[in-house]
Nucleic acid binder design. Structure first.
Lengths: 214, 214
DNA sequence: ACCTGCATGTTACTAGCGGTAACACTAGCT
DNA sequence: AGCTAGTGTTACCGCTAGTAACATGCAGGT
């Protein structure tokens, strides 16, 4: 039988793959999403064709890399989301977890949010809407699931939960992106403001004096 | 005086510029954000260097192109935002305006949301956060201004309004992007769900039976 | 010993990209 | 005439993603 042999080979291939991914990680951490295949290969101490044998094309490598970080981030988010606490507290913890992550490793964050975007070839498919950032989609679906599991939304709850999941994730993302660039306030303040928004403070607030109609 | 002469030249240059922009528009509409400078030049019936003389570099052309569409979209959004109606109604009208726009011209939408992303040179700066999509930022700031003008938020209103502006825009964007890809419901339903979210229905809803702690 | 198969690695190449230098032509002003 | 300014070209650079062809080292079978 050649099973043992094959297992050995597979193992060594997997190890190599992980090594390559770690090298790629280092380069992305240093150069951002513009990291070229040449640079990654050099960092790994090899040349391009090997990368292509392992990952197919740049998209494949980037997908593998993104999956890693995405999984890690999703795990922390799930922990915050599933904690045995009041809803408001859980929401704030989740927001804070996400913001802390992007604050700690902005390069990785930037990479995850702008993955494909190659240059010339491939990229087919298109189809308007297919382009969305995978991490955002996954977070949206994850959040939708938690909402549907734990919040009583009456009929049509599944669809409502999904809209909210993606909507809230988008809110978190956009606000975080803006905050990371301008740093207009502390993280805690941002978390509080966003939670306030989700808690309906916009609807509850009164009109300002000297309003419309004058 | 050379004023008339200069005016003539400027006029003709401006006309040429507009023609080139329209050609670029056609190409982007056809090829998406991957449209190459060569393709745009060919569509305009000229060659690359002329494009570069007019717009500096690819970023310049794309910025000019994006400004056009962004201005148009922002104008409609402002109209919906400033209408003399109840707040909820205005919010729903704004959401619907945005969603209708991205539904009608998904290619343009995709282009606006993924502008830069060149390939090799330039792109310096980086600085984590600088990369955000201009359209989103502008919409966020616009909304923040309207919120601050018309809603009474007590002290620190400016900062709160900005957080909310960017957050709400992000929510709209992410939900719209997901919706455009999966089409899980009608536009009206989506608008209603998002408005419900902003109106605090998440906070108001009860826990689901069989909740945590068991 | 020898040959076969397979994974790993290389060099050298293609095609296309963004961007630029150098040159040709036309128009109007002095 | 001559000078300047704008429009246009061809031909090139350096870079990218991706590939073909060739070399090497290590299993196992005969």
């Amino acid at each position: 039988m050649d099973t043992t042999q094959r297992t050995d080979q597979q193992r060594s291939a997997d190890r190599r793959r992980r090594e390559l991914l770690e090298a790629a990680d280092r380069v992305v951490l240093r150069d951002g999403p513009q990291a070229s295949m040449n640079a990654i290969a050099a960092e790994a101490g090899i040349t391009k064709p090997i990368l292509y044998r392992h990952f197919g094309d740049k998209g494949g490598l980037y997908a593998a890399l993104a999956t890693r970080h995405t999984d890690a981030l999703l795990a922390s988010l799930r922990a915050a989301l599933d904690a045995p606490a009041e809803r408001r507290e859980r929401v704030e913890a989740t927001l804070d977890t996400y913001l802390a992550a992007i604050e700690a490793r902005p390069q990785v964050y930037r990479f995850l949010m702008h993955p494909a975007e190659g240059g010339q070839t491939a990229d087919q498919g298109f189809e308007a809407g297919k382009h969305s950032i995978p991490l955002l989609r996954r977070m949206g679906e994850e959040l939708a699931q938690v909402i549907e599991e734990r919040v009583d939304l009456g009929p049509n709850s599944q669809q409502l939960a999904r809209v909210w999941g993606h909507g809230i994730v988008g809110m978190m993302h956009a606000a975080g992106d803006w905050w990371l660039g301008e740093r207009p306030c502390s993280r805690a303040e941002l978390v509080r403001s966003l939670a306030d928004l989700l808690w309906g403070r916009l609807a509850a607030a009164g009109d300002k004096a000297g309003g419309p109609g004058f």
